[in-house]
Simulated scan of single mutants.
Amino acid sequence: MTTFPNFLDTATTTLLGTKPLRENPHHRALLDAFIKVQNLEEQLLAAITTPPAPGAGISGLMEACTDLLIERLDAGCDLSELLSSDYCCAADRAVVEPCVPCGLETGEECCQEPAEPTAGLLDACCNVFAQLGHPHAVASADLVDALRHLPGIAGKHWRYSDLTQARLAELLAPHGMRTRDITLPDGRRRKSYSREALLTAMGVCTSC
């Protein structure tokens, strides 16, 4: 499967002299999650059908398949959250959503939805990294668990207490922050946010 924009789409835009369309972060997150599920299923099928290396035995095959299965289940949960999200295009949201979906008292603050995550969310993520001893990366699930204890609104209509991994990914995507499969200090390999990406999003030079 190819993704947008690819070479042909870019060439078409150039030839026609049209303006490139702005990518919707939520739609991109959906596409990335779907592609990841497909890739993991292909890897899992290949691992199951490929004979184990000499001397590896069935235990090695089971270990490899178990790790891939866990990653596939995690990716499936993320995709399900994105598909079930109440996010929609801004033009439609005002029609289909009530005035106070976030549960706040009716007022201007509730109805003024920021287009991008606030600096407060980035600061909150930075504080979590600091509390954990400034690791090079923090698992998405661990970051969400820590942020859910905070009061207030994280972004859009979502309170910190209502954050999920998919919602956090949607809020951080406009700042160029995306999860990557990273092996953490405790040995777990999880979908994680890197400290370097967070500092870059906050405008902190990481090469000094």
Rank of each mutant, 00 (worst) to 15 (best):
A47P: 02
L122T: 10
L8M: 06
R167K: 08
T2Y: 06
Q38D: 08
C102L: 10
P54Y: 06
R167D: 03
P101E: 06
H175Q: 05
A166K: 12
L44R: 03
R189W: 00
P20A: 04
E196K: 15
A146Q: 04
P5D: 06
V37G: 07
K156M: 05
F4P: 00
D9I: 15
A166C: 10
C208N: 12
E23R: 05
G120Y: 04
A119I: 15
H27V: 08
R195N: 04
P117R: 08
I58F: 04
L121T: 02
R159C: 02
T18R: 00
V95Q: 13
C89K: 01
L104S: 09
H26G: 11
N39K: 07
V37E: 11
L83P: 11
A90V: 14
R189S: 01
T179W: 12
A91L: 08
G155L: 12
A115I: 12
E41A: 15
S80R: 15
H136F: 01
K191A: 10
M177N: 10
P135K: 10
R148S: 15
L199Q: 00
L61F: 02
M62L: 15
E23V: 07
A197K: 01
P51G: 14
L199I: 01
A115F: 05
A124N: 06
E170G: 09
C111V: 11
L83K: 13
C110R: 00
Q43Y: 01
T12D: 10
R190K: 09
A139V: 06
P114E: 07
L172I: 13
V100I: 14
E170Q: 15
G133V: 09
T183Q: 01
P52Q: 15
T18Y: 02
G55H: 02
F34M: 11
E42H: 09
Q131D: 14
G107V: 04
D67P: 01
A47Q: 03
S207L: 09
L16Q: 08
K19N: 14
Y193G: 05
D142K: 01
E105R: 08
Q43I: 00
L104W: 03
S194A: 07
M177L: 15
A56D: 14
N39I: 13
L15I: 10
E105T: 05
A169T: 14
H134E: 11
A139P: 00
D92V: 05
R28G: 04
Q112A: 08
A124K: 06
Q165R: 15
E81H: 14
D86N: 11
Q165F: 09
T118N: 02
T12F: 08
A29S: 13
V95D: 13
D145T: 13
I153S: 00
V95P: 07
C205D: 05
H26W: 10
L121W: 03
H27S: 07
V100K: 11
N6G: 04
S80G: 14
G152S: 10
D9R: 15
A146M: 09
C125P: 08
T14P: 02
M202W: 00
M177Y: 12
A56P: 04
V100H: 04
I182A: 01
E108S: 03
W158T: 12
R180Y: 04
R167V: 07
D123Q: 09
D186M: 13
T50R: 08
A146R: 06
T206K: 05
F7K: 14
E97R: 02
G203M: 09
K156E: 08
C126M: 12
R72Y: 05
L40N: 03
L143T: 04
